[in-house]
């Protein structure tokens, strides 16, 4: 397995790109492409990454790069890979799409490629909203978050829906590899990219990528916020290999979701009631996720006897 010290120093995504200072997307792309290496051909749909990585007339990529529209990452990398195979080239097509381009508009195209088990790597850079067009809510936006389309007013404060469980949707295609990654956990990050690189078939890497203006946060805290996300259960690190799910990092003790929320302006308006709602949702997820067979409930923030309330509330909001 490749270690951090063995990673090549050469930047395949060069400096001078125009991402905001502290951008989690830029940080993830840069490290992912270092592991993927030169025999990679990249596709990026409409998103921040296409703007800051290829601001005309310049380009940051040192590997072949392709861009067309917003909704077609799955289809484009399928076609690129087919061409490489026809020409006998040993190249892997890799798509780097945003959460809008994956959870929402690109879902059908991604699903098609996954279902056909195309021999490609699909990377979702999840910054939890449509950032490039000025912070609109997506299916990946968490409960309570402010965006320009889920404003904070007197009647409603922020997003009312919970983050869509994309991992389950992708894994349901029974693909060879799905993994969640966080740049705050670089060893786990590098291991998963390296693993995906060496598997055949459809591989999906789901990266948690903080956004400075979209999350209204201090640019110096990008890494810290991803660590808080994992410690609180807002983001979980796992992989599903041929249907088998494995937790790759379990935080020692569950931290309150409030610590994570208060680092970011997009959540700072949240009422105690809303924070509790979100905490309950996280507790439920945490228990499902980390509970080994027969082990006691692990969530320590909300007592187990209150967990049925979560289910009730969930039903009220989403139907049975």
């Amino acid at each position: 397995m490749i270690t951090i010290k063995e990673l090549p120093d050469e930047n395949l995504f060069t400096a001078g790109h125009t991402a905001c200072p502290g951008c989690g997307v830029a940080m993830s792309i840069r490290n992912a492409i270092r592991v993927l290496g030169k025999d990679t051909s990249v596709y990026v749909p409409a998103s921040c990454a296409v703007v800051f990585g290829t601001t005309f007339p310049y380009g940051a990529w040192k590997v072949p790069f392709f861009h067309t529209a917003f909704e077609n990452t799955g289809a484009c990398i399928t076609g690129m890979q087919a061409a490489f195979e026809k020409k006998g080239k040993k190249v892997t097509a890799v798509g780097f799409a945003g959460d809008g381009g994956t959870y929402d508009i690109g879902l059908q195209s991604m699903s098609g490629a996954a279902e056909r088990n195309e021999d490609v790597i699909y990377i979702c850079l999840d910054n939890e909203a449509y950032m490039n067009t000025g912070i609109q809510r997506s299916g990946g936006t968490p409960f309570g978050a402010w965006t320009t389309t889920t404003p904070v007013g007197t009647k409603v404060q922020g997003n009312r829906r919970f983050k869509k469980n994309l991992g389950e949707i992708v894994a349901a295609h029974e693909i060879p590899y799905y993994a969640t990654l966080s740049i705050g956990h670089p060893l786990d990050f590098i291991r998963k990219v390296e693993k995906a690189k060496n598997i055949k078939g459809f591989r999906f890497l789901h990266m948690f990528t903080p956004c400075i203006p979209g999350w209204k946060m201090d640019p110096a805290k990008t890494v810290e916020v991803t660590k808080r996300a994992v410690e609180s259960g807002m983001w979980t690190l796992y992989e599903v290999e041929n249907g088998e799910k494995k937790i790759t990092f379990k935080p020692g003790k569950m931290k309150s979701v409030r610590d994570y929320l208060m680092m970011q302006g997009r959540f700072r308006h949240m009422s105690d009631e809303d924070i509790k709602k979100l905490q309950m949702w996280v507790c439920k997820k945490w228990n499902l996720h980390y509970k080994e067979k027969g082990a006691p409930e692990v969530c320590e923030i909300v007592p187990p006897e209150e967990h049925h309330a979560v289910t009730e509330e969930h039903r009220e909001m989403h139907g049975p």
């Binding site: 060069t14 001078g16 601001t55 940051a60």
Partner: peptide, 19 residues
């Protein structure tokens, strides 16, 4: 049709001036 043909050419943007 215009294309970006030089790999790694963003190095022309000296982003240190943003600091």
């Amino acid at each position: 049709i215009k294309t970006v043909t030089k790999p790694g050419s963003t190095r022309a943007n000296k982003t240190g001036a943003w600091r």
